[in-house]
Write a protein that binds this DNA or RNA. Structure first.
Lengths: 111, 111
DNA sequence: CGGTATCCCATACGATACTG
DNA sequence: CAGTATCGTATGGGATACCG
């Protein structure tokens, strides 16, 4: 079953499948980051920041860390000077892309 | 197509199809409310509050107003004492339910 | 280059009391 | 019954400066 399992009395939203999904891909930037990576992988940190433009280093850094902790993004560090770090999508992240696309399609049809 | 149209330089996220979708169904409660209505329609205000449990009157009221303004929920007021108000899903809301269900399914498989 | 530290703010959300 | 008013809080995000 879906989110309808949530009756609010016994379970918290975070403990529902839906709550998990939103904790992982919710927020202002995460889906944008996933889409960016889907289109062009791997990407370096500053390159992502330039492409998104409106995001600050601090926020981009924090979002990437959360995505990495949730197993959606891989961080590969190259021990060289100047430093180089590449970010990629995991296979887990690949599986959610079709759903994101559907959210977009709904938005296109209904706004 | 899709959110990949967003390059962050020229468009704000709110102006993308994806941003619209999230403005309409994002937040902590809206999808829960939609699911509740999907399962049992129409529902009265206090009944919804009881079923969700963790939500306050104030927040439920605000969320319902936004959903109504976005064309996802219909509010029907019965001029009687004691007052009676029934909330239902619009056809626009029906079209997004399958996508919500997919978000749930992804959460079930991946958490 | 790829970040972190610090401070600040806006907004969503919550608790409680009250009302037509 | 179906809300609103008021006040308070917590979190995400933003600005700027600095660091290895």
């Amino acid at each position: 079953m879906g989110i309808s399992d949530f009756d609010g009395e016994n379970i918290a939203i975070q403990d529902t499948p839906f709550g998990y999904t939103m904790s992982v891909i919710g927020g202002k930037w995460k889906m944008i980051i996933l889409y960016l990576l889907a289109a062009k992988q791997p990407v370096r940190f500053n390159e992502m920041q330039r492409q998104i433009g409106a995001i600050t280093y601090k926020v981009l850094s924090a979002q990437l860390k959360e995505l990495e902790a949730d197993g959606l993004v891989t961080r590969k560090e190259f021990p060289q000077i100047p430093p180089k770090v590449e970010y990629s999508l995991t296979s887990k992240a690949q599986t959610i892309l079709p759903v994101l696309e559907q959210l977009c399609e709904w938005g296109e049809k209904n706004r």
